[in-house]
Every structure is written in structure tokens, then in C-alpha cells.
Simulated scan of single mutants.
Amino acid sequence: MDIFDLKENLPFERDVQGDIERIRRSFETISADYGIDIHIKDFLGCFATRPSFKPMCDFFLWHDSPFCSYVKINPHAAETCVTLSNEYLRRRCIREPDGFFGTCFCGISEYVIPVKYRSTVIGAVLLGEFGIPSDSVDRRFARLEKIYGFSGEMLGEAYEKSTRSVPANMDAILTVVKSVVLAFELVAEKYIDKKLVDRLETEKRVRRGDIVDSAADYIRRHYAENLCVAEIAKACLCSPSALNHSFKATLGKGIPEYINHYRVTHALSLLSKTEDSIEAIAAECGFSSSGYFIRVFRHVTGATPKEYRNRHAVAKQRSSKKQK
């Protein structure tokens, strides 16, 4: 497949699955050939509601680099990263429809290309993940440590593994990506109904924020208890499916994953600030057993609770020596 010939081959003559698969392979080819990460933002949920679009968007949905994964173990940081950044990105995409180069609050830079349905911005394609100057990184890391309690050393290690320099041929890469985005927009216009876009835009503004805010508040107040999706949905006056959909569309994760991440956040604090046993911390954070706690903690952070406690102690000692 030659991604450079996409414009010449439009409009598409095959069914929607064939059109979407062709675009997905184009993005994969660009990512592999140029060594950059590609992510797709679904601002309104248009792609998630269309079965033909969902597999491709799910494939490019996650920022799963070591740095982003570490930052998102904190539910508050994850909420800022996903919810607030999505709203900010969409507003900026509306102001700058030709695309822009931006940096998130954690220090990851990306090129952002809006995806439009006629005149409505429904998503974006992000190209990255690029680093920023070290002095700017230090300032952002200091803020992340202060607000969310992250380890500066662990942030630095993950950031170094996850970022790269902007390629010298970035202009050529952008030209190629924009041709694929154009194809994406034409397919969206062909297969997504305008009434759906209008309805989703209205519903997103009104309902999704209310559901997620209510559920997140309930989880914050009851995280140490035995929680289930049905119970949380009942408290939020919505169905379990609506709750899960709102969470995944807004925060990029389902309810169980959000609960585990929230519990791990509290465990991180206890591991670094107390000498409580692993068993006691597991119980205090709402985990059913220490074994399950260790499995979840390792899945979220990449380390066991004991390893994290030891690394945090070493980092604290180094910091104390520097201050002296």
C-alpha cells in the first residue's frame, strides 16, 4: 500500500470496513517508517459509537509510553491529563484548524492535526512524543512532585525512555499525515450521520461531565470499601453501561481500572510516608488481599510495593544529600 496515493484514490469505492482498515494501515506505516507515535483523540465519541471506526481508534487511543503510564497511575493527574487536556485540545483545534505544535502540562510535546466533520471538530491525530529543554522539564517535574507526590527520579527515567527529538524531516511527515487525515475526514463524512454528531456534541457537554464527576466523587469517598459498577451507577442515577462508556470516553479507562488506579495512588503515599506493612496498606486502600494488591500495583507502576518503597527511600536519601 502506498500512503502517498490516498488523495488520488478518493472517493473510496469499498465498504466502510475496507476504507477504515486502509487508513489504519496508513497510520501504522507512517509510525513504523518515521519512528513516531500516533494517537487518535475522539472528542465527541463519534468513533466509539460506530462499530466500524472503533477498532482503529482503540488501536491508536492510548498514550502507553512509560512516562504517560507512570503519570496516569495517579487518578487526579490522569483526570487532568485526559479530561482537561481533551477539552483544551478541542478548543485549540477549533481556533487553529490547520494544526499546531503543543506541550502538555507534564512536558510531552506533540503535533496536533484536527479531524473535522464538515465544520465540526470531532477528533484529532497526535504525533509525538517529543521532549522539551531540560530546564523546562525540571520545572514541570517539580510541579508534578509537589501536586501529585511523584518521584522526580522515576519521572526522569520514564521521560528519557519515552521521548525523542523532532525529526529533521517533520514537515514532510506532516504532509503525509495530513493526507491520511483528509481521507479519514472523508470517510467520517461518508459514514457518520450529522444528526449523530450534533446529538453527541450536545450530550457530551451536558451529561458526560455530570456522570464522571459524580462517579469520581463517589469513588473518592468510598475507595476503601468493596465497590462495584452497579452500586456506583445507582448513586449516579445512570445505567452501568452509561457509566462505563462515560468513563472510557472521558478518562480513557473503565470504572474497575479507575478504582484500582485511585487505590494505588493512596498506596504510593502510604508506602513513601509510613512504615506500615504491605498487608495493612492493602487493607487500608480497599484491596481484598495483599496478593491482589501486589499484582495490581505491579501492573499499574511496573514495580512491586516493596520495590517502590525501596526506590523512593533511595531517591529521598539522594535528595537529602544534595540539599546538604
Rank of each mutant, 00 (worst) to 15 (best):
E8L: 11
V16R: 13
G18M: 14
I20A: 08
E21H: 14
R24D: 04
R24L: 09
R25F: 06
F27M: 10
I38C: 02
H39G: 10
C46N: 05
P51R: 15
W62A: 13
I73E: 02
P75K: 07
H76M: 15
E79D: 08
T80P: 01
L84Q: 03
N86D: 11
Y88V: 14
L89T: 10
I94D: 02
E96D: 13
E96C: 08
G107L: 08
P114N: 05
P114A: 09
V115M: 11
T120F: 04
A124K: 02
E129Q: 15
E129M: 14
P133W: 13
P133R: 08
R139D: 13
A142Y: 03
I147P: 00
Y148C: 06
F150H: 07
S151H: 06
A158R: 06
E160H: 10
T163I: 15
S165T: 12
L174F: 09
T175M: 07
V181L: 06
K190N: 15
K195T: 05
K195A: 11
K195H: 12
L196S: 14
E201L: 08
R208F: 05
I211R: 01
R220S: 11
H222Q: 12
C228Y: 09
V229Y: 04
C236V: 03
S239Q: 04
T250F: 00
E257F: 00
I259N: 00
L268Y: 02
S269A: 09
D276G: 09
S277Y: 13
A280H: 12
E284R: 12
G286S: 14
S289V: 11
S290P: 14
I294S: 13
H299T: 08
H299D: 14
R309T: 08
R311V: 11
Q317E: 10
Q323W: 03
